[in-house]
Design a protein around this nucleic acid. Sequence first.
DNA 1: ACCTCTTGTAAGTAATCAACCACTAACATT
DNA 2: AATGTTAGTGGTTGATTACTTACAAGAGGT
Lengths: 200, 200
Amino acid sequence: MIRRKPAEDRKADIVEALLRLADRIGPDRLTTNDIAREVGVTQAAIFRHFPTKADLWSSVGEVIAERLHLAWDQALAGRGAPQDQLRGLIAAQLRQIEACPALPAILHSRELNVDNAFLRDRFRGLLAQYQAHLVACLEDMGKEGAIRADIAAQDAAILLTSLVQGIAIRWGLGAHGFSLEAEGLRLLDLQLSLLAGKPG
Amino acid sequence: MIRRKPAEDRKADIVEALLRLADRIGPDRLTTNDIAREVGVTQAAIFRHFPTKADLWSSVGEVIAERLHLAWDQALAGRGAPQDQLRGLIAAQLRQIEACPALPAILHSRELNVDNAFLRDRFRGLLAQYQAHLVACLEDMGKEGAIRADIAAQDAAILLTSLVQGIAIRWGLGAHGFSLEAEGLRLLDLQLSLLAGKPG
DNA sequence: ACCTCTTGTAAGTAATCAACCACTAACATT
DNA sequence: AATGTTAGTGGTTGATTACTTACAAGAGGT
């Protein structure tokens, strides 16, 4: 038999294994057998720690939500200029995706969005919160004249979240062939210079 | 028993049913049973028309590729100003997604990207071609002074494709609560005015 | 009206899925 | 060293998966 671990540790192992496999196999194709093999236990062991597969996904969702929330709070904690806060928010998002490439796929997976209504609403609220942070930063920047006056902060926020999503997709398709954070921040600066209305 | 159709018609029915269900159920969770029920035939009937499920997906891929190609050609056929061609290309993409909401999910599905190497490469080439069209339009616009001189056409193209992807995602999450084409073109015009460096 | 392909079905297959069971080895506490 | 608890196993469940085979019946041409 394998080395035994306290339930909390093993639970974390299982969630981590799922996160790793979700990128390789795909969130909607993962089986409990796949996960068990990755962890190094039998399939039945998964069900000792999570009553059902749906419960396992719920835990995964909670872990992701916590990480994102923490990353955003840290980005906003500095209390620097609104530009810096904005950059921090975007950088945090890019780093989260780089650390867990399955994140976009999971966020849009049917597993979480169709089967688990609670988590779907939770994530929807979470992303709305992120968008609200961006809008707040952009409004502050607008008052300082760092954003063109004819641009609504809401629309600018949409452009920025789209940018992150678009680059993340390109990063995934290109087999992670470049630094997501570096490329993302480069294009962010470009977009910010466009929004400012003057060359960067 | 049901009304019998010529094989070509039934094949098209099956592909259409898959496209419809892919949006509701998810591309990677779709079963041949789901498809058969949607079409209104037995599961075995699917295999009369497609030897394997993978062959069915190949047909779906071909249909999508043809539609996209056709839509792009029509957008470029007008031979108007580069701005109009660009707008046409983006509008075509938005309309394709609106007509077939499962398109983004299918394009990024494991079904097509992991299991079917041929189609994956086919789509990768197709999207590269689209990007090349955008870059060509943007370069022409740059020569006419419609794009700020300090912006590379390649980067501008990335911003625009990201915009389409981002809005499509928002449209999907919001249960198609707004007109994708209208909202997309509105933000496109906004981004173009940013790229031009002068208020729209 | 008949004949003949073609389209469809009913009833299977083996493989795999999530989940359950009785049981046991490892661990902590005493 | 004895005892109770917990993590993990092997074996099995019924449901579901993609796919097959043998047979029936509709539709079109003559």
